[in-house]
């Protein structure tokens, strides 16, 4: 394998759902459009952005676990080779580990220790015990069923399961919501360690503050695609170094920054604006912004989709 070859690359990915409306008319709802991303070994790509912008569906597309009425176009490659449905099945849980956003992924009928052991080679009990200890889960927790766990304990069990696998690519979809800061830091430092050993990590999160110390790049999602990809250092101060108006607004809305909302919501997939996806809410929008959609372009060591970004 070439030194800098991406572990994962996603090219012009589009995901849509067939849906039936009133009168049984069939429509296609496109929820991810023209999305490209890649991750190199040793790197952490953080994915942040709007709720409902397609972050989880991207994760599900990579793993091959989208529902059956989803249609996917574009290409994905793992280790430089096309990621086909067959390969997804083969790699899932082995080479590619997944921390799901929904706690419903825990099997309600199985004790959680056994669930985590299922992703360890030879089902070793010590490994499971060590990882539980690392995440401050008491020794009796392995014998509990999911319904007996607190919200944060369920999260930590999901995280443990992915951390003990020898996967070379880890897709973490909101691994830490509702956890206290020490454990968030533990989990993120752990991901950093795994990356430093040469693995690649995609870290989807709303906790922008927490990823600043561990991620290499941050991709910002809005309405089904990336609006900006930037080195992590650009997320600082008042967001002056950020390229896209949405990224800046998101940054300023953090409770530790200004906590200022912007009026309006992300447009829905069936009803996207003709021009720039952010144009209905953008303070900088000009005529051309409403007429056509800006393409992704390189800018200052990052990427952006905006006519007026400098």
């Amino acid at each position: 394998m070439a030194l800098n070859q991406s572990v994962l690359s996603v090219n012009e990915l589009t995901v849509s759902f067939r849906q039936y409306t009133r009168g049984l008319r069939q429509i296609e709802l496109t929820v991810i459009t023209g999305l490209s991303a890649e991750i190199q070994p040793g790197k952490i790509l953080a994915v942040i952005g709007s709720s409902g912008s397609g972050k989880s569906l991207l994760a599900h597309a990579i793993l091959g676990i989208l529902p059956s009425n989803a249609r996917v176009t574009g290409t994905m490659a793992y280790d430089g080779e096309e990621l086909t449905a067959e390969r997804q099945v083969k790699l899932r849980g082995r080479e590619i580990a997944f921390i799901p956003q929904s706690v419903n992924y825990l099997d309600p009928l199985m004790k959680v220790g056994a669930q985590v052991r299922a992703s360890i080679k030879d089902n070793k009990k010590e490994v499971q015990r060590d990882i539980f200890a690392r995440y401050h889960l008491d020794s009796q927790v392995e014998n509990l069923y999911p319904f007996q766990l607190s919200g944060g304990m369920a999260r930590r069990v999901l995280v443990s399961g992915a951390m003990v696998s020898d996967a070379r690519l880890i897709i973490a979809d909101e691994p830490t919501p509702g956890l206290h800061p020490e454990i968030v830091e533990e989990a993120l430092t752990h991901l950093r360690q795994l990356a430093d050993e040469g693995r690649a990590v995609m870290l989807i999160t709303h906790d922008v503050g927490a990823v600043l110390n561990v991620a290499d790049y941050i991709a910002v999602f809005y309405a089904g695609t990336t609006v900006e990809t930037a080195p992590v250092k650009d997320f600082a101060g008042k967001g002056e170094a950020l390229r896209h108006p949405y990224s800046k607004a998101l940054w300023k809305a953090l409770p530790q920054n200004d906590f200022i909302p912007v009026s309006g919501f992300q447009p829905s997939p069936g009803d996207l604006p003709l021009g720039c996806l952010f144009s209905p809410r953008c303070p900088m929008a000009s005529r051309e912004c409403f007429e056509s959609r800006p393409l992704e372009r390189e800018l200052r060591g990052g990427k952006v989709r905006c006519y007026h970004a400098t």
């Binding site: 709007s50 709720s51 909101e174 607004a249 809305a253 906590f259 909302p261 919501f265």
Partner: peptide
Amino acid sequence: ADEMTTMLDALIQAQIWH
């Protein structure tokens, strides 16, 4: 509100809390 907005992006979090 039990961890009501940890699943929301910062912008919507701010909107919802307002």
